[in-house]
């Protein structure tokens, strides 16, 4: 008597199902509920319609997220490729090095970037001044914020790409070489299309936290401009306006979901993935 595979799956997955219901689905319901009610609990669309006020902030966050994601991709892809070409021992060490900064708290790492980028006591500017070069104003600019995003989220781009590349079918690459493909052609027609799933999940894992971050922009941007995460955080922490905060988060979530869905749709067809 064969047991139905899905029923066994259900049993195994039940801990996570409970977890998801408690900590993912239930909070989402709260977010939706708060978005469409006012402080007294009555139905209103005021919060959602107040969003036009925050449109510039949304645009800024999305643009910063895109830039940070692209920079991460440009840095991470070759890195992941090079790591995957090494022997297993070296690979392990290099992966460890990539992960190493993540052993430290995200907050502390971001805070220490302040010390690196500062004008007077900053390490970079101190170095420049010692060489007799002019100081560069870096802290509290959008450059610093994007740098912070790239620095903090780069491992999230490298890891998924690397793990896909490490499992690439070497025989495919060899076959391409046997058929006379140049080095570039092999990469273009073979390695890139096959590593696309890693790229997609890397983009998701960098873009989503970049768009919604608030700590980085507060510390490295000096609060000179808001990202949407700052506005949301302020509604919950300072203004005690859960309704507006929830509405903003809801819109952010919907935007991210849409962009992820679109991206998955167009990278999903394996045919013609070559650039």
């Amino acid at each position: 008597m064969k047991r139905h595979p899905t029923s066994r799956f259900n049993v195994i997955a039940s801990p996570y199902a409970v977890w998801a219901a408690l900590f993912i689905i239930a909070p989402l319901i709260f977010v939706v509920y708060y978005s469409f009610t006012d402080a007294a609990g009555a139905f209103t669309t005021e919060n959602v319609s107040a969003l036009s006020k925050y449109l510039p902030t949304f645009l800024r966050s999305i643009w910063f997220g895109i830039v940070a994601t692209l920079i991460c991709l440009v840095i991470a892809y070759p890195t992941a490729y090079l790591i995957s070409q090494k022997t297993e021992n070296i690979q392990r060490t290099m992966v460890l090095l990539v992960m190493l900064p993540m052993w430290m708290s995200f907050l502390i790492r971001t805070y220490s970037w302040m010390a690196i980028l500062e004008d007077e006591n900053g390490i970079i500017n101190g170095f420049l001044a010692n060489l007799g070069l002019p100081r560069v104003h870096m802290i509290n600019t959008s450059f610093a914020v994007i740098l912070g995003m790239v620095y903090n989220f780069l491992p999230y781009m490298i890891m998924p790409i690397y793990s896909v590349m490490a499992k690439l079918d070497r025989s495919m690459v060899e076959a391409a070489q046997d058929l006379g493909g140049s080095r570039l052609t092999v990469i273009r027609r073979c390695i890139i299309p096959m590593s696309m799933p890693g790229v997609v999940s890397g983009i998701t894992m960098v873009f989503v936290p970049s768009v919604s971050t608030f700590y980085i922009s507060q510390k490295l941007g000096g609060g000179a401009f808001d990202l949407i995460g700052d506005v949301i955080e302020r509604q919950f922490q300072q203004s005690y306006n859960y309704n507006l905060g929830a509405a903003l988060s809801l819109v952010l979530m919907v935007l991210i979901l849409i962009s992820m869905a679109v991206m998955n749709r167009f990278t999903g067809d394996e045919e013609g993935m070559a650039i």
């Binding site: 510039p56 902030t57 104003h137 450059f143 401009f225 808001d226 506005v231 302020r234 203004s239």
Partner: peptide, 28 residues
């Protein structure tokens, strides 16, 4: 007034001056 203050504060934080020396920003 508390509500107004937090809305206005959001405006202040989001405001980027368009005249004067303003923010110089070598990235953008």
């Amino acid at each position: 007034t508390l509500q107004l203050m937090s809305t206005l504060w959001d405006d202040v934080k989001n405001y980027i001056p368009t005249a004067g020396s303003g923010t110089h920003d070598f990235f953008f």
